[in-house]
Each structure stands twice: as C-alpha cells, then as structure tokens.
Amino acid sequence: MTNTARAKLATDLDELRLLAGLSYRELARRSGCARSTLHDALTGRRFPRLETVLAIVQAGGGNVANWRERWTCAVRQRPDEYPLHAPGTAARMSRQSTSPS
C-alpha cells in the first residue's frame, strides 16, 4: 500500500489492536481472520477488505461505523475526511508509549 490514506488506516488499526492488548493470535481468534491476513492488513502490506477491517474493529472494541467510514475514505483516497478523535478510533499515541517499560 503506497497511498497514505491506506497506510494510515493500517497503522491506526494496528494501534487499535495494541491498545486493546491483543496479540495477533488473540486477534485472529476473536475476529475469525487468519493471522496472515491480519498481518498483511495491519502492516500495510495489502489493503484489507471491509469485512476484515470490521472484524478487527469489533475484536478490538472499536466503533464500527467510524471505521467503516475511514475504510471508505481510504478507498476513495480522502484521509482528510477521516472522523478523527471519535470514540473507538485509535488514540493518537506512539507505539513506544504502548510497550511495557
């Protein structure tokens, strides 16, 4: 994924996973998605299908409606229309702040 909107979606989905305290294994169990599919989606290797995004969001306790809109904006390449700071979106923090000391 070279598009910045799509890359941002992947980064924020991974932050949602981290904030929920989910490993790839646990996320796979909760979402019903293969770990390889999750890894591709969360690292930005491949742009995920909407169903994959929604499964990740539900497993991580995110707001499905907001993430559906974010996925649509990423497909349309319009990151400026993301619903920022809405409940269930990934918090704006660095990955370092989520790792144990």
Rank of each mutant, 00 (worst) to 15 (best):
R29V: 08
L13G: 00
T11F: 11
S23N: 03
E26A: 13
R17W: 03
C33K: 10
R49M: 11
N66F: 00
G21N: 07
R25P: 03
V64Y: 00
D14F: 07
V64M: 03
S31D: 05
L27S: 08
G44S: 11
L18G: 04
G44H: 13
R49T: 12
A65T: 05
Q58I: 01
L19I: 06
A20D: 05
V57P: 07
L38Q: 02
V53E: 06
T11Y: 09
L16V: 01
S23L: 05
L13I: 03
E15V: 09
G32Q: 04
N66W: 04
D40G: 06
V64G: 00
G61N: 01
R35W: 03
Q58D: 02
R49A: 13
Y24K: 11
G21V: 08
A55S: 12
R30L: 14
T43D: 14
G62V: 05
L19M: 12
T52E: 09
L19D: 10
D12H: 06
F47L: 14
L19Y: 00
A59D: 06
S31K: 09
A28M: 04
R35Y: 04
T43H: 13
A41H: 11
S36T: 13
Y24F: 15
L18M: 15
A55C: 05
L50F: 01
A59V: 05
P48T: 13
H39R: 14
S31W: 07
T43I: 04
L42P: 12
L42Y: 14
G21R: 07
R35T: 14
G44C: 10
G61V: 03
F47P: 07
R30E: 08
E15Q: 07
G21P: 09
E26I: 07
A20I: 06
E26T: 12
R45S: 15
R30A: 06
S23A: 09
T11H: 10
D12N: 11
V64D: 05
A20K: 07
L27E: 06
L50G: 04
L19S: 14
Q58K: 07
D12Q: 11
A28Y: 06
I56S: 03
L54E: 11
D40Q: 15
D12F: 06
E51K: 13
R25I: 04
A55W: 03
E26R: 13
V57N: 01
V53D: 04
L54C: 02
D12G: 02
A34N: 15
L38G: 08
A34S: 14
V64W: 01
T37F: 01
A34T: 08
A34M: 10
A28H: 13
R46G: 00
F47R: 07
Y24N: 12
G32F: 02
S23I: 03
R30P: 02
A41T: 08
V53H: 03
R17G: 09
L16A: 08
A41Q: 11
A28T: 11
N66Y: 03
V53N: 07
R35E: 12
G32H: 04
A55P: 08
T37K: 06
G60V: 05
G61I: 00
P48N: 12
E51P: 00
E26K: 15
R29W: 02
A65E: 10
R17L: 03
L13N: 01
R30W: 02
G60H: 01
A28G: 15
R45Q: 14
A41M: 09
L38V: 07
Q58F: 00
L42K: 11
T37A: 14
L42V: 12
S23Q: 08
T37G: 04
G60I: 03
E51T: 14
S36Y: 04
S36R: 12
E26F: 01
L16Y: 02
